[in-house]
């Protein structure tokens, strides 16, 4: 039990996908101009990363490892992620057309999010069991969503602030992101204890 709790804290905070591993930076800068889009994107990504971590673990364990096809890992994982996103999109459309109207737009953006593939590859590197792999995927994506929401909140406040013209827009965004990364470095102290 303690092992799983540590795994989750480590994945969400200490080795945060965005601020420590620098994955998913395009969506981090691109989709965080509004809080509502950041929440939508964060939750959709959480769902897809968790499900694809589970599926990729199965593919690795039952297909790639037994047949010595490890060299195909990246290609196969991308295929599994794209299939998971397509399946989710179709299911959402079937389950609730109004929800698809509201939230479906985030799903295609996830296929090309490197954080999803990055987490799947980290799962393989970690040699985890299925439940550990799925929890790792879930915690990593919760960390991703947390940072997206914090950064979107900060950018909404920045939009109302008087920023010098030279720093307005992306430059001040990058400065704030670097300060946020420094703040998250504080969590690395947890692993020291």
């Amino acid at each position: 039990m303690q092992e799983y709790v540590l795994l989750m804290v480590g994945a969400a905070l200490v080795n945060n996908v965005i601020l420590a591993r620098f994955l998913g930076l395009c969506s981090f800068m691109g989709v965080t101009t509004r809080l509502d889009t950041a929440i939508g994107m964060g939750l959709a990504t959480t769902f897809v990363i968790t499900v694809s971590s589970m599926l990729n673990w199965g593919v690795q364990e039952y297909l790639l490892d037994p047949y010595g096809l490890g060299y195909l890992r990246t290609v196969v994982f991308i295929l599994v992620i794209a299939a998971a996103v397509q399946f989710t999109e179709m299911t959402v459309r079937k389950v609730s057309p109004p929800l698809f109207q509201m939230l479906g737009i985030y799903l295609p953006l996830i296929t090309t999010n490197c954080a999803v593939l990055g987490v799947a590859l980290l799962v393989v590197e970690g040699r985890m069991d299925l439940f550990g792999a799925t929890l790792f995927g879930f915690a990593s994506s919760v960390g991703y969503s947390l940072v997206m929401v914090i950064f979107a909140g900060l950018r909404e406040r920045l939009a109302l602030a008087e920023v010098p013209r030279l720093f307005a827009g992306p430059p001040i965004g990058f400065i704030v992101a670097s300060l946020l990364a420094l703040a998250f470095m504080g969590f690395s102290g947890i692993s020291a204890h």
Partner: peptide, 8 residues
């Protein structure tokens, strides 16, 4: 929107 993302 929040309820919808939660449900979905």
């Amino acid at each position: 929107l929040l309820k919808a993302t939660g449900a979905l």
